[in-house]
């Protein structure tokens, strides 16, 4: 794919773990690709698949949902619901012909700054190879 294509990724980060972990990456001055724009939610369980589809149809090339590790959810079992929804969402993506790699669910704890950076790096690389989603066919040329 184009070597200077910059994937645009929307990140839904739960306040208690993932968002705090992402903050920690910044506090530790870890440098990682700026392709994920974070949107804070209280729990990854808040992420409605509608939000994900909206992101993809509005120009995002990928979506990252990040929450607490299973068992550590601040709201007991919010992230369990996220897993369930995610599996159904994946089937929906298949039906749309969207590559599963474009929407990822990751667990990042509040102390995992390094891990958050790696997840973003990883996902950015993967999407760079996959190329732009081009949902409406009217993505501006980079």
């Amino acid at each position: 794919m184009e070597s200077n294509f910059e994937p645009k990724i929307v990140g839904f980060l739960c306040k208690w773990c993932a968002y705090t972990g992402a903050d920690l990456a910044g506090t530790s001055r870890i440098k990682y690709p700026p392709n994920v724009t974070p949107i804070r939610v209280m729990c990854s369980g808040r992420v409605d698949p509608v939000l994900v589809m909206k992101a993809l149809s509005s120009g995002a090339d990928g979506v990252l949902i990040a929450g607490c590790h299973p068992g550590d959810c601040h709201y007991q079992s919010g992230n369990v619901k996220t897993i369930r929804r995610f599996k159904l969402l994946q089937r929906m993506l298949d039906q749309f012909g969207i590559e599963r790699d474009r929407v990822r669910l990751e667990w990042v704890s509040a102390s995992e700054g390094e891990r958050y950076a790696q997840v973003v790096e990883n996902m950015t690389e993967t999407l760079r190879k996959l190329g732009p989603l081009n949902w409406n066919g009217n993505k501006e040329a980079s």
Partner: peptide, 30 residues
Amino acid sequence: CGVCVAACPSAAIEQRNFTDDQLLAEVESV
């Protein structure tokens, strides 16, 4: 936490300060 909000098929539940409108606006803008 908002788990019920994401599940409601009628969009009848809203989470104050994390409403669908607010999040959608954020997503769209990004």
